[in-house]
Structures are given as C-alpha cells and as structure tokens.
Simulated scan of single mutants.
Amino acid sequence: MTGTPGASSTRDGEAPERPPPCSPSYDLTGKNKVVTVDGMRVKLQIWDTAGQERFRSVTHAYYRDAQALLLLYDITNKSSFDNIRAWLTEIHEYAQQDVVIMLLGNKADVSSERVIRSEDGETLAREYGVPFMETSAKTGMNVELAFLAIAKELKYRAGRQAGEASFQIRDYVESQKKRPSCCSFL
C-alpha cells in the first residue's frame, strides 16, 4: 500500500459517506475502519490511491475534506520515497491547514530488500514536522498503531477544552513503538 490514503472523520466520529470523486473505472479503494479510543468509537474513512499518477488529478478533492492523511512509501523502492516531497507539497497546497499527517515506511517485513534507511524516513518526517514509523501491511506491524494514533489525535481535537494539555501524536507514537510487541502482529 504505497500512496496517500486519507483518513477522514467528522466531529461526531462518523465518517461522511461519499463516493470517490472520479470515474468508477478507476481502481481507487475506499474502506471504513472503526477504532475505539478511550471508549469512543471513531470511524475512519480511508481512500487508497496506491500513489498512482492517474489519481493525482482527483486527490485534490480528497485533500480538501480530509482531517488526516497517512503518507506511505515503500522502503524497498527509492522512487516511492523520492515522491513523498511532491505529495507533501500538494497536501500543503490543497489540504486543510490543520490536517493531521503521518509518514509511514511500509514493507518493514522485507528489510533484506531495504533501499531506504529508517533514519532517512525519520529525517524527512522531522523536516516536515510529522510523526513517522515503519509498518508492514503484510504482517500488520504498526498498522493498528498508525490508525489508533490518528484516531486519538482526531478525538482529542474534537473534544478539546480550553486550557487542556494538548495531545502530542509524535510523543504517543514514539512511546508506543518502544513498548515490547506493541501493535505488531509478527
């Protein structure tokens, strides 16, 4: 799963139901995922373009409404990593100013084929001020953590009270990655 799937949720936790803004002949995948955060159900609506150039013209419509975006690259594919800056430029141009962005290096299960170092992903994430982790869609490693972190951030924003300490998604991700066997299904 390499691309820019957007995770969107409304203030009450229910994702708006809408068809993709393109022809049905496109291979755009949309799924719903419900995550429970502190006893509250948060419904994420996920659209996966798989980074395909043919979707570049329709992604602007998704950026406008998205409250969160998971930006993935393949750790075994340098061009997918190199394209991240272009995707981030588009996101900053078309998405809401307060959109939550998370950078994910996928295929961590095939580290023997790695061409992008984890440190390179971390450096890029720091440069853009976004949280980062490596995942494996195949094994499930850190996939649930990515969705949970996004859902926690969206829940926090929806219910934020004046003077309340802010939720720090980067700190949360880092603390959970350090826990033994957290969110990895190896």
Rank of each mutant, 00 (worst) to 15 (best):
L69E: 01
R54E: 14
E113A: 13
M133L: 14
T10A: 12
Q176D: 07
G105C: 04
V37S: 00
S136M: 10
L148Q: 11
D38N: 13
D38Q: 11
D171H: 09
L186Q: 11
R126T: 12
Q45E: 03
A165V: 10
Y62G: 06
E134C: 07
W47V: 08
E53F: 04
K138M: 13
R11G: 06
T4W: 08
L28F: 14
A151R: 04
E127R: 14
I46V: 14
A158D: 04
Y172A: 03
D171W: 02
V130K: 04
P24A: 15
S112K: 10
P20F: 03
P5G: 05
S118Y: 14
E93W: 13
M102P: 00
M1L: 13
D120H: 12
C22Q: 05
M141P: 00
I169P: 00
Q67P: 02
K178I: 04
N83E: 11
L44N: 05
R56Q: 11
A66D: 05
A7R: 08
L103Y: 04
A66W: 05
E164P: 01
G129E: 07
R18E: 14
V173R: 05
L28K: 05
E127Q: 13
P21Q: 02
V100Q: 04
Q52K: 10
L103R: 08
R157A: 03
E90L: 05
Q168I: 08
V115I: 15
G121A: 02
A61R: 06
V37E: 00
S23P: 00
V173T: 10
L69R: 06
M133R: 04
W87S: 02
A86N: 11
P5L: 15
C183T: 10
M40N: 08
N142M: 04
K107N: 04
Y94P: 01
L44C: 03
L70D: 01
L148E: 14
I46K: 00
K107G: 04
G6E: 09
A151L: 07
S181D: 11
V173A: 02
I150C: 04
S111P: 01
V110A: 12
F167Q: 02
M1S: 14
A165P: 04
C182K: 08
N106V: 06
D120C: 04
D65G: 06
D27Q: 07
N77H: 13
Q67C: 10
V99I: 11
Y156E: 01
K178D: 09
E153A: 06
Y94I: 07
V173L: 03
A95N: 07
V42R: 15
G13H: 11
Q45I: 01
R157I: 07
Y73R: 13
Q176H: 11
S8T: 15
T135V: 15
P16K: 12
K177D: 00
K152E: 03
D12W: 09
E90A: 02
G159L: 02
H60D: 07
Q52Y: 01
E122A: 14
F81A: 01
I75Q: 11
L124Q: 10
G39M: 05
A137R: 05
K78V: 14
L103K: 07
S111W: 10
S25V: 14
E113T: 11
R56A: 08
